[in-house]
């Protein structure tokens, strides 16, 4: 991380703290830092969210466009992720500096959303093998304070939850071409089913133990981190709590950093990640549902960026 210099003694202090399950900011090894989340912040996007996790600031906007489905999967829509590392975050990202990191994160997101058990692309189908919705998920990293992957996955899920897709009024076959008529009314739209969308949890190996949600200082003490993507529980994201518990499956596991881990440590880490992801998913669902209710009652007060 840019501009971060830690002396060996400071590193030892952090490592010892983790060993005792007591980190330098007072958290235990499986605690997240407080987060701020707000949806519907960008007026021109179909769905948007802004997440602030300590010093990490992420803005996600979802744009919907109409595309032709790929011949291999005529009944599926498309979703694409783009990450932009703004030079505001750190001077290192200036020019093409953040490119590698951006490609890494967008690849990881693409892989996490690959399975239909994570995100069902069938709901984006308009007319089989003719037309489908394409979601462009644009992720903007405004500030970089460690733990980017987790923050990005949370913000993306919130933005998708907030995304509205217009209803298709009529689809006329005109000489083999589809003619769509969409409603002008912005409220005449459907919401996406994103309950099972995956969350990513980064487990940073410090000493012998793994910590969740590492700060930038802690990240610099570790040579390897394991990133797990876990599918969400749909029942947490709908008002009726009747649907059964689902999710908790791994959609992606990846290792980041120059080090290596023992098989047992990896197994422990992915289990720890699964527990953390479940808790995170539950609280994200609660927060998003609460905000949706507020916006229905027109009580929502927009905070925007200047708070």
């Amino acid at each position: 991380m840019a501009g971060l210099l830690l002396s060996p003694t400071e590193k030892v202090f952090i490592v010892h703290g983790v060993q005792e399950d007591y980190r330098s900011d007072g958290r235990s090894n499986i605690d997240y830092r407080p987060m701020e989340l707000e949806t519907d912040v960008v007026s021109h996007a179909s769905g948007s969210a802004r997440l602030r996790l300590a010093n990490t600031d992420i803005l996600v906007g979802v744009k919907t466009e109409i595309d032709v489905p790929s011949p291999e999967n005529p009944d599926l829509g498309k979703i694409e992720f783009f990450v932009d590392c703004s030079a505001n975050a750190t001077p290192e990202f200036e020019g093409r500096g953040g490119e590698q990191l951006a490609i890494g994160i967008s690849n990881l997101m693409q892989r996490a959303y690959h399975s239909s058990q994570a995100f069902n692309l069938k709901q984006l189908c308009i007319f089989e093998s003719k037309q489908c919705w394409k979601l462009y998920v644009d992720i903007l990293i405004l500030e970089c304070g460690g733990n980017l992957c987790d923050a990005v996955s949370l913000a993306v899920k919130a933005a998708l939850f907030n995304t509205r897709i217009p209803f298709v009024k009529a689809a006329l076959m005109d000489g083999g071409n589809v003619d769509l008529q969409l409603s002008d009314d912005p409220y005449d739209s459907k919401l996406l089913d994103v309950g099972s969308a995956p969350l990513q949890v980064t487990l940073c190996k410090i000493g012998d133990k793994c910590v969740v949600d590492p700060s930038a200082e802690e990240e610099s003490c570790s040579v390897i981190s394991v990133i797990v993507g876990i599918t969400g529980n749909s029942s947490c994201f709908s008002e009726d709590n009747s649907s059964p518990d689902t999710g908790g499956k791994f959609t992606t596991i990846d290792m980041n950093g120059p080090g290596s881990v023992a098989p047992k440590t990896l197994k422990d880490a992915i289990n720890q990640g699964r527990v953390a992801a479940k808790l995170l998913d539950k609280s994200l669902g609660e927060a998003l549902l609460r905000e949706r209710q507020e916006s229905v009652k027109l009580k929502k007060y927009s905070y925007g960026f200047l708070k």
Partner: peptide, 8 residues
């Protein structure tokens, strides 16, 4: 370790 798909 690279995983893609969905599994328990």
């Amino acid at each position: 370790f690279t995983l893609i798909g969905s599994m328990d």
